[in-house]
């Protein structure tokens, strides 16, 4: 069976994000970008399925700017077999919304006929947590989100989900969408020989128009602000003073 893994190019998790002067979003000019960490976990899971002999082919897809091909190469270096790049924007600041991404992914699923789509549970840039669920709805497939464990058995997948208050184990019939949570696995490093091999693996370039999907935004970003700066602490002399300060602040 084929496994499809959508990956997103996002601001690197190590970068201290800065808001653009006009408040329209985060400044991404000359900022280090890398694969969304949850997507890396999804790629790793798909490769493990291939190594276990459960999956025959791992296809990675990215929707966004042309530079997302670097992200796809990373996935190919990890062990994915081929990649599809869907160019849908020419400015890195133009984020493609989850519904448009889901529509494009649906079209690719129709073409490629994978039995399983493994996606990251959300992208760390805008934290929408929506594309996987929307894709499931568009396809009419079952979904198992926030997976921390995945086992395939014939035409069903058993997925342990990280939910508030504990773990929930569900079974979902294939084809299905699984979204990866942090503890699903620990992604490997791409080895040097595999990094070199990645450039020889096929990477198909498409556009959003090829799939007839309108990617113009439906949401309007009203304002982006940085989190409030942590104010300096004060030293208290005694427990009594601590308690009275806390009362003053209304926290006890």
């Amino acid at each position: 069976m084929k496994v499809l893994v959508p990956v997103k190019r996002v601001i690197d998790y190590n970068v201290k994000a800065k808001v653009k002067a006009d408040g329209s979003g985060v400044d991404l000019a000359n900022v280090k970008m890398s694969m969304n960490p949850f997507d890396e976990i999804a790629v790793e899971e798909a490769i493990r399925l291939k190594e276990a002999g459960t999956a025959e082919e791992v296809i990675v897809v990215s929707v966004g700017v042309k530079q997302a091909q670097e992200t796809l190469r990373t996935a190919l270096a990890m062990g994915a077999d081929r990649a599809i790049l869907v160019v849908a924007a020419d400015d890195v600041h133009n984020d493609i919304e989850p519904l448009a991404v889901a529509k494009i992914l649906k079209a690719i699923v129709d073409e490629e006929q994978p039995k399983l789509v493994i996606a990251g549970k959300q992208a760390i840039d805008n934290d929408m947590n929506a594309a996987g669920q929307m894709l499931a709805a568009l396809l009419g497939w079952g979904q198992a989100t926030f997976a921390s464990e995945l086992t395939l058995d014939g035409d069903a997948a058993t997925v342990t989900r990280e939910v508030d208050g504990g773990l929930q184990t569900i079974t979902v019939g294939l084809p299905a969408i699984v979204t990866a949570d942090l503890r699903l696995n620990e992604p490997r490093y791409a080895s040097l020989p595999n990094i070199m091999k990645a450039k020889k693996k096929p990477l198909d370039e498409k556009t959003a128009a090829d799939y007839g999907v309108d990617v113009s935004p439906r949401l309007e970003v009203v304002k982006t602000t940085e989190p409030p700066v942590r104010s300096a602490g004060i030293m208290v002399e005694s427990v009594d003073e601590l308690v009275s300060k806390l009362k003053e602040k209304g926290v006890v």
């Binding site: 890398s34 670097e70 190469r73 990373t74 791409a190 040097l192 450039k199």
Partner: peptide
């Protein structure tokens, strides 16, 4: 691109 990937890895 490969050299950047090598450095990053």
């Amino acid at each position: 691109e490969e050299q950047v990937a090598i450095f990053d890895m």
